[in-house]
Design a binder for these strands. Structure first.
Lengths: 145, 145
DNA sequence: CTATGTGCAAATCTTTTGCAGGCTA
DNA sequence: TAGCCTGCAAAAGATTTGCACATAG
């Protein structure tokens, strides 16, 4: 589950701070660090709690695992991130909150964006009586050949 | 997570036995019981381990939770069932092994089939170089209104 | 009779939570 | 200063596993 994170510079710290400010989250040292790793370079990123925890440790400013979990939860609650369910044993989090399709690489357990423009529904069923469609998850599972 | 299971009669035991035989699985008392609950009426069914465990208990012939887990795993390995990932905290199993779309009722945590004919892709992306598409999961998340 | 399957309890793994001390506004 | 945040360790919940006993072929 190799994940490549933003190199941290002044710019990424600034970007992370803006990102937190958008959601009225207190810019603590830990949140700034995690935010920088997540959106420091303006790219969208897919992480697991464990992966982000390791990235923080590698970056030289460790954040406790509990705080990584709590922070990812806070980011989701604040609408900054979304949780993607692809694997029964692990949660994935995406810095992009739009409903979009994903590739899941079964060999490396890596989650990436699928080109959204190329996944189009010809039709979707009418939601059953009394229900509305909250979201449509599309996971394209890939195997190396 | 109310799940309604097959009423067990001679027919359902027969059906369950055939189902096991198709996969060369030994027809033990526990497997026959679970198979009957799953495919006894020829309907496709979506279960969690806990739900199936309770159904067995209610049916008057309990099966231990560990065996329910091991058996569901065995049924999947044998190609009789498939595992559907919709919820990070629980695994769902489907007696239908074809790749087909699902409704997930967020309020009751219930998983049902979506009318497959009505979910058509206009297009799917080309799998990235060196990969092939193993499966495409479509989960339509529903909220009650 | 031998290989498999079952059940219990214990282990494992991911995620959450209680609580004491620290830090932002 | 008040309240939110962090980290640690413990708790919780789902699933797996080790092992002794049972059972199908």
């Amino acid at each position: 589950m190799e994940q490549d994170f933003a190199k941290l510079g002044a710019a990424s710290l600034k970007t992370g701070a803006d990102w937190l400010a958008r959601a009225d989250l207190r810019p603590t040292r830990q949140r700034l660090r995690l935010a920088s790793l997540l959106v420091g370079d303006g790219q969208s990123r897919h992480v697991t709690a464990e992966g982000l925890f390791l990235a923080a440790k590698d970056s030289g400013e460790p954040v406790s695992l509990a705080t990584v979990y709590n922070t990812l939860r806070a980011f989701c609650d604040a609408g900054l991130m979304s949780e993607i369910t692809v694997d029964a044993t692990r949660s994935y989090f995406d810095t992009c909150v739009e409903d979009h399709p994903h590739f899941f690489w079964e060999d490396t357990q890596e989650l990436t964006d699928a080109p959204s423009a190329e996944v189009a529904f010809a039709s979707l069923p009418e939601p059953p009586e009394g229900a509305r469609i909250a979201r449509v998850d599309v996971i394209i599972r890939l195997k190396r050949r």
